[in-house]
Design a protein around this nucleic acid. Structure first.
Lengths: 229, 229
DNA sequence: CCAAAAGTGTTAAAACTACACCCATGA
DNA sequence: TCATGGGTGTAGTTTTAACACTTTTGG
């Protein structure tokens, strides 16, 4: 036990709730625990923070180690510190949530970790520790934030159709949106760039592909623009 | 050194940004450090988390110990974990922000701590550690949140006038608000209860005193109501 | 009677909502 | 030629923004 301190210290971990959209479901990536406590149950990916890495670095490292996912949108969610949230000892966990593009990927092909899997948010498995609470908080944050920050794009490929974008909002917010009003509003913002290309290999009229124009968005924000769906 | 662990652990602290409104200024309570590092400089009140208390309990305990302030609105802000944010060793800090009523209190009379003082947010002293960053984040959160959550009331006494409430929004948001439109909007929400009383000892027409009706507000939220100023 | 803040309505502009049909494409 | 989703405009309603004077009270 080479590390000794004058006062007891809580252990510090990060946990990372990863969301993706797969056709008609909001999904979350979970890993199956191999060891006690809660062996065999599912959990949010995460692990201990090293003393020489920042919290966000720790979250990204754990995420990649446990699920193979990297280079995603990642934002701090909340820090969970109930005294008894881990039955072994005091553990404080800084939770993050991540948004990733799942369209066109096989749900099982994205990761090397054999014990990682995507679950529909509407039918989660029973979760270890206080992870059900963390997941609920992450979903609440996503629902709240998606309406006034341009993070819906993070759940789509780089280039996407307006219908795909509308589906993202319908799925996350869990309500129908009027097609004409949605397109009018989004296009009027001027933060989507028409790539000039259209979909390929679809059995109907091919839709235009757009890209989120972060440059323009940032410039507009500096001038007082406020994104809202 | 009675507490030993297999792996190095960051120290864990809480910090607590306390806001108050004093006539025409948003103010923040700071304490003057007695010891190195940064001896003599000002800092956000806070301290170490004990292993047998939750994060919020720690924040409230430290706040009362260092400033005498208790029973206030308190909400978790963000967890700061840059590797070098404390020059001595790795310290991760869970920051909270608090809102308190300062009207009618002498700025210096509220606390036993002789080294605690209120500062106008527009003219903060030089701060220790990364506390300037924490303060900035807290103010940004307050500005953002005050518009769509009924927390402005926390900066006022239990009973207040509509003009006082309007001033809170003008000060926090740093812009003028139209008196007639403000009153119309707030009263139309139906979340203020007219106490039937009016101001005393004012050298002009006495204003009605209102109280925030949390019962009604909670009931309305359950029915889908969304507060917004 | 003066100073100071309380209190009160209307109108024009903008934003939002609801709503239905034709178009392009590949099978 | 059919099935599928892409793409488009208008009218009624609601919400917001701008704006000025009278009332009450204490000094």
């Amino acid at each position: 036990m080479p590390f000794a301190y004058e006062f007891a210290r809580p252990a510090l971990t990060v946990d990372c709730v990863v969301f993706g959209i797969d056709e008609d479901d909001l999904r979350v990536m979970l890993i199956q625990r191999g060891i006690e406590p809660f062996a065999g149950m599912w959990a949010i990916p995460g692990g201990f923070v090293r003393v020489d890495e920042s919290l966000e670095d720790a979250a990204r490292r754990e995420l990649e180690e446990e699920t193979g996912i990297r280079d995603v949108f990642l934002e701090q969610l909340f820090t969970f510190g109930r005294v008894d949230r881990d039955p072994r000892e005091r553990v404080v966990s800084v939770a993050y949530y991540a948004l990733t593009n799942l369209i066109g990927h096989d749900v099982h092909a994205r990761t090397d970790a054999t014990n990682a899997a995507w679950f529909a948010l509407s039918e989660p498995p029973e979760l270890s520790f206080d992870h059900a609470e963390i997941l609920e908080a992450a979903y609440a944050r996503l629902r709240g934030k998606v309406r006034y920050q341009p993070i819906g794009f993070e759940l789509l490929p780089d280039r996407f159709t307006l219908t795909q974008l509308q589906r993202v909002y319908e799925i996350v917010l869990d309500r129908e949106i009027d097609k004409r009003n949605f397109r009018k509003k989004i296009l009027a913002m001027g933060i989507l760039k028409d790539t000039g290309d259209v979909q390929k290999d679809v059995a109907h009229r091919a839709a235009r592909l757009y890209r989120f124009d972060k440059r323009v968005y940032d410039r507009m924000v500096r001038k007082g623009f406020h994104f809202e769906v």
